[in-house]
């Protein structure tokens, strides 16, 4: 078996989906380059390779614009994890996930895992405003839940109120996301008890401050590992000769992680 780190073919595919301007590119940029900077609306989809231990994880950062909607299912084909991203200050961005993006995931793997990520939490949340340690300590999930609860009682915003120009309100609560997660499982025909719990799969992040970003990506990567191992076992059992593998052995170049 060839050295896995030299394999250029990615082991597993993770896709970022969500409406335009929710911060998909910024989340990935924060995670890969440890930076937050102004981005331009993504064109089509952008492919990144992340080295995760001995594995290569490919990440597709897709365009949220309706213009590229037709490509969505192509980017999702064979995905092991889909990150459904919304903007916590924009109710419509959560609604779009259900209306526009969920059906794109039909081409993903049968056992694909889904994460719901509410970005721009720094705009609504004191805690998310603090810049993270650059090394990114994974956040305790229970802690983040408490935080949301206190915020909820402090500022009960009706979900459909428009964002005012003076101050940005939180339009999507964690409960809304958890409820949507339930509906996603239902849509996929998955049993809630045997699936990953909503608590674990709903995140609130800030690409601007780095809040919860590493925790989100790394939780997912750890969760898709079983999928990688299973895929590899299947490949080993496959009686077909894989020319790719032979070609790879001779080649010295390896594409390391992007940063």
């Amino acid at each position: 078996m060839p050295d896995v780190s030299k394999m250029k073919k990615p082991d597993v595919k993770v896709v970022l989906l969500g409406d335009m301007n929710v911060g998909k590119t910024s989340l990935l940029h924060r995670y890969m380059d440890r930076k937050f900077k102004e981005t331009i609306s993504t064109i089509g989809g952008a492919f990144f390779l992340k080295q995760w231990g001995p594995y290569n994880i490919s990440i597709w950062d897709t365009a949220g614009r309706e213009q590229f909607h037709g490509l969505g299912s192509m980017y999702c084909r064979g995905a092991a994890a889909v990150i459904l991203t919304y903007d916590v200050t924009n109710w419509q961005s959560l609604a779009e996930l259900e209306e526009r993006f969920l059906s794109l995931t039909d081409t993903a793997l049968q056992d694909c895992i889904y994460a719901l990520v509410g970005n721009k939490a720094d705009l609504t949340d004191q805690q998310a405003q603090l810049a993270q340690d650059p090394d990114g300590q994974p956040q305790d999930q229970t802690e983040s839940r408490d935080r949301t609860d206190t915020l909820l009682s402090a500022c009960p915003t009706p979900p459909d109120s428009p964002a005012s120009l003076s101050g940005v309100h939180k339009q999507v609560t964690r409960e809304d996301a958890v409820a949507l997660y339930g509906r996603i499982l239902h849509y996929k025909g998955l049993d809630e008890k045997s699936s990953l719990p909503a608590d674990k799969m709903c995140f609130e992040t800030s690409a601007k401050t780095g809040f919860n970003v590493d925790a989100m990506f790394e939780t997912l990567f750890d969760l898709v590992l079983p999928s990688i191992l299973r895929k590899r076992n299947e490949n080993q059992r496959s009686p077909t000769v894989d020319l790719e593998e032979y070609r790879e052995v001779g080649s010295k170049r390896s594409r390391s992680g992007c940063c």
């Binding site: 590119t25 990935l28 940029h29 890969m32 380059d33 981005t39 064109i43 089509g44 989809g45 952008a46 492919f47 990144f48 950062d61 365009a63 590229f68 490509l71 992007c258 940063c259």
Partner: peptide
């Protein structure tokens, strides 16, 4: 975001 490969 220039490290990536774009497909469009």
């Amino acid at each position: 975001f220039q490290a990536g490969e774009i497909w469009t």
